[in-house]
């Protein structure tokens, strides 16, 4: 049985600095945080950092190898791969963040309702089981097919795909917390169920949600790249790491840099998220650690 009562919750404001300091003392986490910060800065400051416009065509400079003028080379339309890689970070990070937010909203609500109200538990738990029977990308593909490919659709589809993962964790933890004396005490004091759920239960669930959210962020970025690669994500003209690899694929024999750099960007960002998630899990959620 899980022991949520003994799980360290998110640190209080005064000890947050110490917590971050302890977290960053881990070399792998520090590496992850630095890389992620760089990616976020590149994404935010893209218009100032990128040497060229991501959509600027230059047919005379098409398929130029990496060098002094074009650090990551150019693509089939002479567009600068470095600039496009930076701009693509914007969309990839945006999709990851939006998917985490939306799937947390859906998953946490479902998990709390299932864990707190016995009548809702079985139907919601079975629904979670059924949703999790679909392989991630396949369900996302089917949803995108139904709703039509667009950025919003990708975010909605991936959120629907990942929400059950969070819902399952939240439900399991809520089932334990519901039985704890302080919840009983709050109920006997006449505090409303909504208040107990949001103030007392949810607050104790923030650690596992944060840890799982980090991993979902990474999964969402990988899935978005896969969908875009298949032509089922955003429009191929919009630079995302997935669409860049898809167009690079056709020129891999002549211009392999078109494929390498966006791929490396995906690997670095996903790896960094996983390293940070691992570090957070070790510190916030020892129940889940189990030396994984």
């Amino acid at each position: 049985m899980t022991d949520i009562a003994n799980t360290p919750s998110l640190p209080a404001a005064e000890s947050r600095f110490k917590f971050v300091h302890r977290l960053l003392k881990r070399k792998t986490v520090a590496f992850g945080v630095i890389v992620l910060t760089i990616f976020v800065l590149l994404a935010v400051l893209a218009p100032y950092i990128a040497p060229y416009s991501p959509s600027k065509l230059s047919i005379v400079n098409r398929l130029k190898p990496p060098g002094g003028t074009y650090w990551f080379g150019t693509d089939e339309f002479g567009r600068d791969v470095f600039s496009r890689t930076i701009y693509a970070a914007r969309l990839s990070l945006l999709v990851g963040a939006a998917v985490v937010a939306l799937s947390a909203l859906i998953g946490v609500t479902l998990g709390l309702l299932a864990g707190f109200f016995r009548r809702l538990d079985t139907p919601i738990a079975r629904l979670i089981d059924a949703m999790m029977a679909f392989p991630d990308i396949l369900l996302a593909i089917a949803l995108v097919a139904a709703l039509g490919p667009s950025l919003t659709t990708v975010i909605v589809a991936l959120s629907i795909v990942y929400a059950p993962r969070l819902a399952r964790i939240v439900r399991a933890s809520t089932l334990v917390i519901r039985e704890l004396p302080y919840v009983e005490a709050a109920q006997s004091l006449g505090i409303s169920t909504f208040h107990i759920m949001t103030r007392h239960v949810l607050r104790n669930l923030l650690s596992p949600i944060l840890v799982q959210g980090t991993f979902l962020f990474a999964s969402a970025m990988l899935a978005e790249a896969g969908l875009s690669f298949l032509g089922l994500g955003v429009s191929p003209e919009i630079p995302t790491w997935g669409t860049m690899i898809a167009s690079g694929r056709q020129y891999i024999g002549q211009a392999d840099w078109m494929t390498y750099f966006p791929g490396l960007a995906i690997i670095l960002s996903v790896l960094s998220l996983q390293l940070v998630g691992d570090g957070l899990r070790d510190m916030l959620d020892p129940r889940l650690r189990k030396d994984l």
Binding site: I245, G263, I266, I267
Partner: peptide
């Protein structure tokens, strides 16, 4: 962290 389609291409 490696997308399988990217590894496949490489």
């Amino acid at each position: 962290s490696i997308p399988s389609f990217w590894l496949g291409l490489i």
